[in-house]
Design a protein around this nucleic acid. Structure first.
Lengths: 237, 237
DNA sequence: GTCTCTATGATTAGTAG
DNA sequence: CCTACTAATCATAGAGA
């Protein structure tokens, strides 16, 4: 009965694997909770287990979302960015407008998601007794996933746009705001873009019949002077 | 130096908290990796730390985009495509059209996904010969995730296309900006392509025998870069 | 602040019921 | 299948460089 050093490879034995899975998942969740409480950070984990029909999410109510959203809304650079370079002002106006819509849309879409999940639950399984927790988990997962997506996009936008991107190039030629400020503003821009498109995407997924109106813009490509305006129109309707 | 039992509460001391955070985050990531390999499951964690501007995700790329990136790297046409990337208007045009199509596809796929989920639910948990219910369910989630990834990339491509337009205009007005910008544009284009092909693949998964042809629009543009047209057509088929 | 060290508490593999 | 137990391994708190 001497315990061996654990061999870090797939456990062939089915029952042993499941046992290990259960134990280690529990440990993992505990670790996450501990990290959260000890260090005051938001953290969550998603485990796609073959033993459960849906991914398991921890914490059950991922407040990680809240943190990000809060940070998001706390963006003070947003206001400054309104007064930025002239050439970008029209884009920023649209962004601001779209951001207002975003809030509303996200709220609506979350409701729709929940409704849909409940619907699935009721239709498919003949009732939701006993499944409420799992479905709630799914809801948390959905929301969190979306936020992850947004974060990822922010990351990419910063990486690509921040170093060689169009916005930075243009900005540099018109007015020099100093390195730190410029970066911050670019951040703001990228984040708003990210959130806006996410909102749009979600809306399109659920409002099935409402987006047939893009065609008018698409065949006017010869007009280069207003390319950006066209793009914005197409994008933000 | 007798170590106490850890007090499971917020660590007041700033530096101690940060140290603990670093250590425990590392441990957490290790645990996740171990759980994954030992039990053959997919798992990821997200930590929103105040010490980094963006949330940290583990594994670095949790199953999304993997496929797309792989496909992108496998593209031998990449070198050739540098030429056509110069055609900013062409790219913008394509992005707009592709975005429209893919959003449509998204809606369609969403519906099909729901149908499949309904079907699965009606079948119940006991049945599903051949494939485990959990597996199918996981696949549904996976597909959902991929769809989101696609949306993300489309929106991103739109964003870059629009700002890229700004760069192109600037370039025309002032002077050639050199290789850096070109490379950036290539990336935008390639990423857009990657997302497009991913979308197509998912459509094929659902439309098994029923592959709709969305290509008829593509030959309507009068861009004279035939190589580019062929290349993108190859992706849209 | 970071990195290393190591004793100890925490986790968990293996086993038994 | 599960829970309980134990001991071996692992993670990490605390201290010092």
């Amino acid at each position: 009965m001497t315990r061996k050093k654990v061999n870090l490879a797939f456990i062939a034995n089915d029952s042993a694997r499941k046992a290990t899975f259960k134990k280690r998942k529990k440990g993992l969740m505990k670790k996450i909770t501990e990290l959260s409480t000890l260090c005051g950070v938001d953290a969550c984990a998603v485990v796609y287990s073959p033993y459960q029909p849906h991914p398991e999410v921890w914490p059950p109510d991922p407040r990680a979302a809240q943190h990000v959203v809060t940070q998001f809304k706390r963006m003070p650079e947003m206001e400054q960015s309104k007064k930025m370079v002239n050439q970008e002002s029209f884009i920023r106006q649209r962004i601001t407008k779209a951001a207002e819509q975003l809030k509303k849309l996200q709220r609506e879409n979350r409701e729709k998601e929940m409704t849909e999940l409940m619907y699935k639950c009721l239709m498919g399984r003949g009732g939701m007794q006993g499944l409420g927790v799992g479905e709630l988990n799914d809801m948390g997962w959905l929301i969190d996933e979306r936020l992850k997506e947004i974060s990822k996009r922010i990351d990419e936008a910063l990486k690509k746009g921040g170093t060689g991107g169009a916005v930075a190039e243009k900005k540099a030629e018109v007015v020099d705001l100093g390195g730190g400020v410029e970066k911050q503003q670019l951040w703001s821009f990228a984040e708003w873009m990210g959130s806006t498109s996410a909102g749009e995407e979600i809306m399109l997924q659920f409002n099935e019949g409402n987006n047939q109106n893009h065609n008018h813009n698409h065949n006017h490509n010869h007009n280069h002077n207003n390319a950006a305006v066209m793009w914005s129109n197409a994008f933000f309707h």
